[in-house]
Amino acid sequence: MSTSNSLLQEQQIISDQEILIAFNDASKKEKAFTWLLHRDQKKIYWFIRRMVIDHDDANDLVQEVFIKVWKSLAGFRGESKITTWLYRIASNLTITFLEQKKKKFSHIELSEGDDLKEKLYSGTYCDGNKIQMKLQEAILTLPNTQRLIFQLRYYDELKYEEISEITGTTVGGLKANYHIAAKKVEAFIKETD
């Protein structure tokens, strides 16, 4: 157990450079990819999970992200960190998924937000205290793009420059969006208390 932990720690601090060199060596390709999975899959999973709420949807999207990464990592030019690139892929797939969901609900009274809220309260893998649930419910009132920015700053604690690389929005725009989102979330919690 301790060996496995130390191995995991070693893999967690493995650099982008090492992963890329190993990935481009056919004999180490799979190993390099496993390092990457060990290092980044949790971050990506939790980011997606907080956006889509449902575990099964998050699981599908995480798999999709990493399959895309496997296909394109050899051509990765290293202009950003691999993790930032992973977040970008995950953001695009998640927003597309949520937009499709919105279209699906466009012709019935239930909205995509209502559906996510229902999943929050009835989902198999959701079980928090009153405050935790209310906070999630408040975050769900935000528009998808604003919610994404809020999650990346509030939970993933990314720098605005990194979020800018992920979303393609200016730092100024991100700051304004985060500020508005935080105010909205706080107001929702106060109003419904």
Binding site: T34, L37, H38, Q41, K42, Y45, W46, R49, R50, I53, H55, N59, V62, Q63, F66, I67, L120, Y125, C126, D127, G128, N129, I131, Q132, M133, L135, Q136, Y154, Y155, A182, K183, V185, E186, I189, K190
Partner: peptide, 27 residues
């Protein structure tokens, strides 16, 4: 948003047992 800053960031989402190990294998 000082009210929000005072709230714990823990979220209510749980995972199936050994999810990440299984997910890695599945991927």
């Amino acid at each position: 948003a000082p009210g929000l800053a005072s709230i714990s960031r823990e979220h209510p989402f749980k995972l199936p047992e050994h999810y990440f190990e299984k997910a890695e294998v599945a991927i």
